[in-house]
Design a binder for these strands. Structure first.
Length: 487
RNA sequence: GGUCUCAUGGCCGAGCGGUUAGGCACCGGUCUGCAAAACCGUCUACAGCAGUUCGAAUCUGCUUGAGACCUCCA
């Protein structure tokens, strides 16, 4: 609880780390932009969700009651301002010759599965855009009523120029409309917008649209940004603590969300805006359009051509935790191998804590070691530092095991609790021991017994023969101090 | 073109003016029938040039290189 008061978060809105003070004591409202389910989320998408899972977990660890809302975008958004282009979900549906919501349902099942595999905690609620059309319409009406939008031919557009008279458009992204206008995207003849920076709140339906809703302005589809405004307001209120998402949503999506909230309620929806950085492949952003992506499932199954072997979801998660959420991260084979070995070291250390012998007192500052865990995370969720500190703790544990340091009974209990808490609860890394090979066990017991006999007779030829044969079968035999193990 | 990031030892990756980041690899050691594993120890980098400062990886300017956003994007 003491540590609640020390959490600093980098706020994209101010560009600074700020002391986190929730709007309501002990409660945190957090909204994170979720996936558009027109395809299976790729590893880059997952990184953002994993990072916000870390943030959610640490807030919970600090004792906050957190309402975590992450939307599911199941209404495709018409990309072309002229309105003749298909929406992304509709396009996928047409390709597979099914209806839009079948596509969403299909990929949502995949997404849910990925969340289980990568050990993500479920948000408090995952509202869908199509389930909140009425709420979206109401906010559009409010914006119209306030004079920050206009209706043209069955569509509604946000009036950026009018808005700029009263509010700062560009407050989040730092963009200046004058600079934006130098870009070549001039209004074309059939464009209904009055100003190039205006964006659609409601789009008149096209005949081929798969999903169409009734509205006061005629049949149509909601604009891209309005769903988040509607759902965050419904579940968290007009103002809440944290709004997060990927860096690439900063502009225009989040900027426009702010405009919509200010335009309807007169206030910025979130006190703190957080942006997770991108996952790179060979230095370039992983992206569907670049076609340089791989799927979260492929790396676990070892079916992506990028890597020779498969990695467990835990290793992937741990690997990601070793980079700060605001830094880009590149996936490379050697880095993943390093993470795999590092995780195993951490894992061994954790297992050892409860076994080490205790002394009258500790020879090192256990409380200080633990406080370092908190300080790392209190500094804008710095998981890489937390992990470094956990490795320091592991070193102490090993030194105690070697009789070079001592620990008291109370300190051991404390260290055990906190190390486990930070690894399992905060980092969300599971260190499960290898699954038990129930059928193999009795066989291996026999084999190991035979080899042990050979070793006792100093029949190294036989014992090495067994070891080599097992190795070829993928079973590694280790002769430790306290007996032989295999895995 | 505009706006903005970033450049760290063999690899990954922290760092926000002075202190060992950490992991992996390498090397040395302990252990071991041998090996593997495990553990301990070691390795001291900050793109280039100039400046500010008692002191800079960390601040300023310039140069070079990479990337993001400005269009759907996590």
């Amino acid at each position: 609880m003491e540590n609640q008061k020390k959490l600093q978060i980098y706020n994209s809105l101010t560009g600074k780390k700020e002391l986190f003070v929730p709007l309501h004591d002990n409660y945190v409202g957090m909204y994170v932009c979720g996936p558009t389910l027109y395809s299976e989320p790729h590893m880059g998408n997952m990184r953002t969700f994993i990072n916000f899972d870390l943030i959610y977990r640490y807030l919970l660890h600090l004792g906050y009651r957190v309402k975590y809302v992450r939307n599911i975008t199941d209404a495709g958004h018409i990309t072309n301002s002229a309105g003749y282009e298909e929406d992304s979900i509709g396009k996928a549906a047409r390709l597979e010759q099914v209806q839009s919501l079948e596509i969403v349902y299909k990929y949502n099942l995949k997404f849910q599965e990925l969340q289980r595999i990568y050990n993500l905690l479920s948000p408090s609620i995952e509202p869908t855009a199509t389930g909140h059309i009425q709420e979206q319409i109401e906010i559009i009406e409010q914006i119209l009523q306030n004079g920050y939008a206009y209706v043209v031919n069955g569509s509604v557009y946000f009036d950026t120029q009018k808005y700029m008279q009263d509010f700062n458009y560009g407050i989040l992204s730092g963009r200046k409309v004058e600079e934006l206008s130098t870009e070549t995207r001039s209004l074309n003849a059939q464009d209904e917008k009055r100003f190039f920076a205006d964006f659609a709140l409601w789009k008149k339906a096209n005949p081929e649209d798969m999903q169409i809703w009734r509205s006061p302005w005629g049949d149509g589809n909601p604009g891209w940004h309005i769903e988040c405004t509607a759902m965050s307001t419904k579940y968290l209120g007009k103002q809440f603590d944290i709004h997060g998402g990927g860096m690439d949503l900063k502009f225009p999506h989040h900027e426009d969300e702010i405009a919509q909230s200010c335009g309807s309620f007169g206030c910025n929806p979130a006190k703190v805006w957080m942006h997770a950085n991108m996952l790179n492949v060979n230095g370039q952003k992983m992206s569907k359009s670049f076609e340089n992506y791989f799927l979260p499932k492929e790396i676990i199954d070892g079916t992506t051509s990028l890597f020779k072997k498969a990695y467990s979801a835990n290793v992937i998660r741990f690997f990601m935790m070793q980079a700060h959420y605001r830094s880009t991260l590149d996936f490379t084979e050697s880095a993943l191998d390093a993470a795999e070995k590092g995780l195993s070291r951490l894992s061994e250390g954790i297992k050892l804590v409860e076994k080490i012998t205790v002394s009258d007192k500790s020879s090192f500052d256990v409380q200080g070691v633990i406080q370092n865990f908190y300080e790392a995370m209190n500094d804008d969720f710095n998981a890489p530092i937390l992990i470094a500190n956990l490795f320091d703790a592991v070193k102490f544990v090993n030194l105690i095991n070697d009789g070079k340091e001592t620990i008291s009974s109370d300190d051991r209990a404390l260290l055990d609790k906190e190390m486990n808490g930070f690894i399992y609860d905060v980092l969300g890394v599971e260190l499960k021991t290898a699954s038990s090979h129930s059928k193999l066990n009795p066989v291996m017991d026999l084999v190991m017994d035979l080899r042990q006999q050979a070793r006792q007779n100093k029949d190294w030829t036989t014992s090495d023969k067994i070891r080599n044969a097992l190795e070829e079968a993928g079973i590694v035999v280790k002769d430790g101090k306290e007996g032989t193990t295999w895995s």
